[in-house]
């Protein structure tokens, strides 16, 4: 989405975010002053706090308020907008990421609390233009309509397939039980998930 000035909405939001970080007092403190302050009071915030997150294989440094969720950090601070915000209340799965290899709701994880954990988002699955097997299976089985739930379902499927390479119907129901699709594409979703571990059938697109 871009406007006549060539400024996309996403870049505009990012710019605002960066301004807020510079204005935060934490950035202005020296490292020693910060350490001394923390020894007296182990609390950080409520202003922006510098944090490090391990995301998709690289360490990302950013500054967020403690109230910033991992989902908001991904989308608004790191330009990783594959994870979607729908309910923002741990009830739909659109924001699903892998934390230490397991499916988790990034909307209900604080970014500051995700430090030291290994985070993988939907962006990490494809290898350049080459889609991951589960993504190919979603295309092949027409496992989306509007597509808004898709990244969450792809990541939840990936989590399942890592523990169970050829899940049966019951395992898929269980493994995707934390995700909802408003368009009701469950038939395609189940087929995609069940077929992704199995060798490609080929032929059909």
């Amino acid at each position: 989405m871009s406007d006549p000035n060539g400024l996309s909405r996403r870049h505009f939001l990012k710019g605002v975010g960066a301004g807020a970080i510079v204005a935060g007092s934490i950035e202005a403190l020296s490292a020693e002053a910060r350490a001394a302050a923390q020894a007296a009071n182990p609390c950080v915030g409520p202003g922006a706090v510098p944090i490090k997150l391990s995301i998709n294989g690289s360490v990302r440094e950013l500054a967020v308020e403690p109230r910033t969720t991992l989902l908001d950090a991904l989308r608004n601070h790191l330009d990783l907008t594959g994870s979607k915000k729908v309910c923002d209340r741990a009830t739909c799965g659109a924001c699903t990421v892998l934390i230490d290899g397991k499916a988790a709701y990034s909307c209900t994880t604080l970014a500051i609390a995700a430090q030291g954990r290994t985070i993988e988002t939907v962006e990490s699955l494809a290898n350049g233009a080459e889609l991951a097997p589960i993504q190919k299976a979603f295309v092949e089985h027409d496992a989306q309509q509007c597509g808004f739930c898709t990244p969450g379902f792809v990541v939840a499927s990936e989590a399942l397939l890592r523990t169970n390479a050829s899940p049966d119907r019951a395992a898929v129901l269980e493994g995707l039980g934390g995700n909802l699709c408003r368009c009701g594409t469950y038939v395609g979703l189940k087929k995609a998930c069940m077929s992704a571990g199995a060798p490609a059938k080929g032929g059909r697109r």
Partner: peptide
């Protein structure tokens, strides 16, 4: 609790 996400968290 039928959600792997809720179970991991």
């Amino acid at each position: 609790v039928h959600s792997p996400q809720l179970r991991s968290m």
